[in-house]
């Protein structure tokens, strides 16, 4: 058989297997159980299984024979899970972010003499309190919060959500007061900028649309 007809044959085999509802349901169940154990999160496990199945269909041409299908399928799933775990680890491992966050310089916002760059200078916001009545505002607000680097996000939320005072935060995360103030300054700069760009200025752009 030619290489190409092998690939076609493989694709057909995978297609036939996955088209078999009982087979699909069975293997899906096994994959989900495995992924949930690894990831400890039902919805992430769902996503990983889904992506693995899609990956299998895309790569069907390189599959090598019925006996190996389950092994092959699980190999794809394990790769997806590894990706998720690596990403999760980056998020949780705040220590490893330390370098990036501490090196953050504010030269995007301020010029060499420390004055606002022209296109970063804060504009007047109109009526921020009124914004809070709009559900779309909170979607944007939450996205901006999620965009904060981990260290900044953590101390900002300890301060503003949990309402700990500065000393309590410093004790909890083992920071000096001056480091804490630097992180809070950066968090506020970023959050403010995000809200201005994504909410205030976006609203003005939308008003200009026909």
């Amino acid at each position: 058989m030619s290489a190409n007809s092998n690939r076609q044959e493989n694709t057909k085999q995978v297609g036939n297997l996955l088209a078999d509802a009982a087979f699909l349901q069975d293997i899906r169940r096994q994959m989900l159980r495995f992924a949930t154990l690894q990831l400890n999160d039902a919805s992430q496990a769902e996503d990983a299984v889904q992506e693995a199945l899609i990956g299998a269909m895309k790569n069907a041409a390189s599959f090598g024979g019925r006996a190996a299908f389950k092994t092959w399928m699980f190999a794809i799933l394990k790769n997806k899970i590894a990706d998720v775990l690596r990403y999760k680890q980056r998020m949780v491992n705040i220590g490893s972010f330390a370098h990036d966050e501490d090196d953050e310089d504010l030269s995007e916002l301020f010029d060499r003499k420390g004055f606002w760059q022209v296109d970063e200078r804060p504009v007047a916001w109109g009526n921020p309190v009124a914004s809070m009545r709009e559900s779309q505002f909170w979607v944007v607000f939450e996205a901006c919060l999620d965009n904060l680097p981990p260290k900044q996000a953590r101390v900002f939320m300890m301060r503003e959500f949990v309402e700990l005072d500065a000393d309590e935060i410093c004790a909890e995360v083992e920071l000096t007061t001056s480091n804490l103030h630097v992180l809070l300054h950066r968090a506020r700069l970023r959050l403010r900028e995000c809200l201005e760009n994504k909410w205030v200025l976006q609203g003005e752009k939308n008003d200009e649309l026909p």
Binding site: W125, V129, W138, L145, E160
Partner: peptide, 29 residues
């Protein structure tokens, strides 16, 4: 400095918004 003048007002707004968010105002909306 008008930029910093605006920034000052926005610091207060930011705190109000964050506290409201913490209290679940976003869920109500």
């Amino acid at each position: 400095c008008s930029g910093c003048h605006n920034f000052k007002e926005q610091m207060d707004a930011l705190r109000t918004m964050t506290r409201a968010y913490a209290k679940g105002k976003n869920e109500q909306e």
